[in-house]
Design a protein around this nucleic acid. Structure first.
Lengths: 219, 219
DNA sequence: ACGCGCTTTGTGACATTCTCACTAAACTTG
DNA sequence: CAAGTTTAGTGAGAATGTCACAAAGCGCGT
């Protein structure tokens, strides 16, 4: 894992001196699938930059319901973690490794140094913020204004693999949209009735991609 | 309007040199009540620091419905504007002056300089971010998991003035919560039936504060 | 004071979503 | 294969959202 910096387009512009510093002062960590990356009591002393895998960031209600806020992909960083989740400790958000995750962990002090020293790094950080906040705006928009069937169709399209399938329980899909499991079950049945998908335990197979896309775009 | 910096607790720690720079290179602007501070086509070349008044930041759906995201109060700054609303131009968010607003406008370049030069200023900026993002998390939580009556009770309590009144149409209250006007009308009627409030056109008078508080806290 | 236009609120009917309390089916493990 | 666990299905009723109006309140000009 020598030159991981090249995986972050925003960091290519860094002067060599700082790249070396970053490499020298961060360490590579590996997290198992399902591991909690941050949240509830974890006080994040590192900025994580994802090299491989994805981290799902979600929020839990007191009643146990969940909603997925966004995902951090390889090549992105968990910026909100460092700056914000500290302040927000009550019904806090948490990050879960969705796959095995490799990441570069940058200690807070190094992070601050880099922010101080480098316009390029600042740009990178602010852009990361920007992306996350855009994601949050999007979630709010969807939650407040869109119907579940349309949102579900969107999600299925986003989460599908190369074979137009996805492995997820209805419960997990409900958490993606911040709704109840029963709602998803019924919607999926309706989709199946209309021939859009084929259901089996823990799996959704998309059978009419075009129609699903059309649905996802209807208002 | 000489020493406005003192109004920002986070900026007190700035070295005098930078305080002077900030004063010298920013200018005080005044905005009329109802003015659009940013959004849709405005490309914000300034960071606004509110000296007086409040700015309401809200989002609009394509169908014309709205939801209030957060408010920027005197002593706070519109950080999200500069960094983020640029990227988010589609169904974008907008900021409206809720009252007459006085603010210090800091040009983007000065902002960058300060970020570069001052740990204290960086802290200030990141804390501002943190607060806003916390607000967004809160909105998402409420939207996804809480009943409207409880959310309405909360809002009435927050928005009330010293006489336990608030001037707002049902439509405006609906926008606060991201719901439909009819829903608010019916809830308010129910509140009135239960003796919690007294309604008249454009005005809600709270008549049983204790009960309303209790409702707002029930799950 | 009166009528006119505009804004705000009220209402019924119906669709969608949420909740609760279950049952049933599908997998897992011993 | 039996027993336990996880996942999915279902009906009933409450809460919320949508639509198409009707009614009431207010400002304004005369």
């Amino acid at each position: 894992m020598q030159d991981w910096i090249t995986r972050f387009t925003g960091l290519n512009a860094l002067p060599d001196r700082l790249k070396r510093k970053l490499m020298a002062q961060s360490r590579i960590v590996t997290l198992k699938k399902g591991a909690r990356v941050f949240g509830q009591g974890t006080s994040p002393e590192n900025l994580l930059m994802l090299l491989e895998g994805t981290v799902r960031v979600q929020q839990q209600s007191e009643t146990g319901r969940e909603i997925v806020l966004y995902r951090v992909q390889a090549g992105e960083s968990c910026v909100l973690t460092t700056a914000c989740l500290l302040a927000y400790d009550d019904h806090s958000a948490e990050g879960i490794a969705e796959t095995e995750v490799k990441a570069a962990a940058i200690p807070r002090l190094v992070f601050e140094d880099l922010i101080t020293d480098s316009t390029e790094f600042r740009q990178f950080v602010f852009q990361s913020y920007s992306r996350r906040i855009t994601d949050l705006f999007f979630v709010i928009d969807e939650l407040a204004f869109r119907r579940v069937d349309i949102r579900l169709a969107q999600k299925l399209l986003v989460l599908q693999d190369d074979d137009n399938r996805l492995s997820a329980t209805h419960q997990q899909l409900a958490a993606e949209l911040g709704t109840a499991r029963e709602v998803i079950s019924r919607q999926l049945q309706e989709f199946q009735r209309r021939g859009l998908v084929e259901l089996s335990r823990g799996v959704v197979q998309i059978t009419d991609l075009a129609a699903l896309k059309k649905l996802s775009k209807s208002e």
